Simulated assay, not measured.
Amino acid sequence: MSRKIKLGILGGGGDSLIGILHRVASSMYDRYELVGGVFNIDLDESIKFAEEIGIGTSRIYKDLDSLIEAENALPEHERIQVVSVLTPNFLHFPMAKKLLENKFHVICEKPMTTTYEEAKELREIQAKSNKVFAVTYTYTGYPMVRQMKEMIASGAIGKIQKIDVQYYQGWINPIIHDKEKRSNTWRLDPEKSGISCCVGDIGTHAFDMIEYVSGLHVKEILADLNYLYKDNLMDIDGTILLRFSEYVKGVLRSSQIATGEENNFTVSIYGDNAALKWEQENPNYLYMLEDGKPMQVLKPGHEYNSAFSLAGTKLPPGHPEGIFDSMGNIYKGVARAINNEEYHPGEFPGISDGLRGMNFIEKAVDSHKNGNTWVKIDEN
Score class of each variant (00 low, 15 high):
residue 231 D to I: 01
residue 201 D to W: 06
residue 187 R to T: 07
residue 186 W to E: 11
residue 153 A to R: 09
residue 217 H to R: 14
residue 182 R to S: 06
residue 234 M to C: 08
residue 185 T to C: 13
residue 168 Y to D: 02
residue 221 I to L: 12
residue 176 I to Q: 00
residue 223 A to C: 06
residue 200 G to W: 04
residue 174 P to M: 14
residue 236 I to H: 05
residue 212 Y to N: 07
residue 168 Y to E: 08
residue 193 S to N: 07
residue 170 G to M: 10
residue 189 D to S: 14
residue 191 E to L: 14
residue 204 T to H: 14
residue 235 D to S: 01
residue 208 D to I: 00
residue 192 K to S: 11
residue 235 D to W: 05
residue 170 G to K: 10
residue 178 D to E: 14
residue 151 M to R: 03
residue 175 I to W: 08
residue 180 E to T: 02
residue 214 S to P: 00
residue 149 K to A: 01
residue 201 D to Q: 08
residue 176 I to T: 01
residue 221 I to V: 10
residue 175 I to M: 10
residue 174 P to I: 05
residue 186 W to F: 15
residue 190 P to H: 11
residue 171 W to V: 06
residue 154 S to L: 11
residue 222 L to M: 14
residue 219 K to I: 12
residue 200 G to T: 06
residue 228 L to E: 09
residue 222 L to H: 12
residue 221 I to T: 10
residue 219 K to C: 06
residue 165 V to K: 05
residue 159 K to Q: 14
residue 196 S to V: 08
residue 159 K to T: 05
residue 219 K to P: 01
residue 215 G to R: 03
residue 196 S to D: 08
residue 215 G to E: 06
residue 199 V to P: 05
residue 237 D to W: 04
residue 224 D to A: 15
residue 208 D to W: 14
residue 211 E to F: 07
residue 149 K to E: 12
residue 195 I to L: 12
residue 197 C to W: 11
residue 217 H to L: 08
residue 187 R to S: 09
residue 188 L to K: 03
residue 174 P to D: 08
residue 163 I to K: 04
residue 234 M to A: 13
residue 221 I to P: 02
residue 191 E to M: 09
residue 199 V to W: 15
residue 189 D to A: 01
residue 224 D to I: 09
residue 181 K to F: 07
residue 157 I to D: 03
residue 164 D to W: 10
residue 214 S to C: 04
residue 195 I to E: 15
residue 178 D to H: 10
residue 204 T to S: 14
residue 151 M to L: 13
residue 163 I to T: 03
residue 156 A to I: 04
residue 189 D to L: 08
residue 193 S to H: 10
residue 216 L to C: 06
residue 169 Q to E: 14
residue 228 L to P: 01
residue 149 K to G: 09
residue 191 E to H: 11
residue 226 N to A: 13
residue 170 G to C: 01
residue 195 I to Q: 06
residue 170 G to L: 06
residue 179 K to M: 12
residue 152 I to T: 04
residue 233 L to P: 03
residue 239 T to N: 01
residue 209 M to P: 04
residue 190 P to E: 13
residue 155 G to F: 13
residue 189 D to M: 15
residue 167 Y to P: 00
residue 153 A to Y: 09
residue 174 P to E: 03
residue 192 K to W: 11
residue 218 V to R: 02
residue 156 A to M: 04
residue 218 V to L: 11
residue 229 Y to G: 04
residue 184 N to F: 11
residue 236 I to E: 05
residue 191 E to F: 12
residue 209 M to K: 02
residue 203 G to N: 01
residue 172 I to F: 14
residue 185 T to L: 15
residue 195 I to V: 09
residue 228 L to R: 10
residue 159 K to R: 14
residue 206 A to L: 01
residue 151 M to K: 12
residue 236 I to N: 05
residue 190 P to V: 10
residue 156 A to H: 11
residue 173 N to E: 15
residue 224 D to P: 02
residue 236 I to L: 05
residue 183 S to D: 13
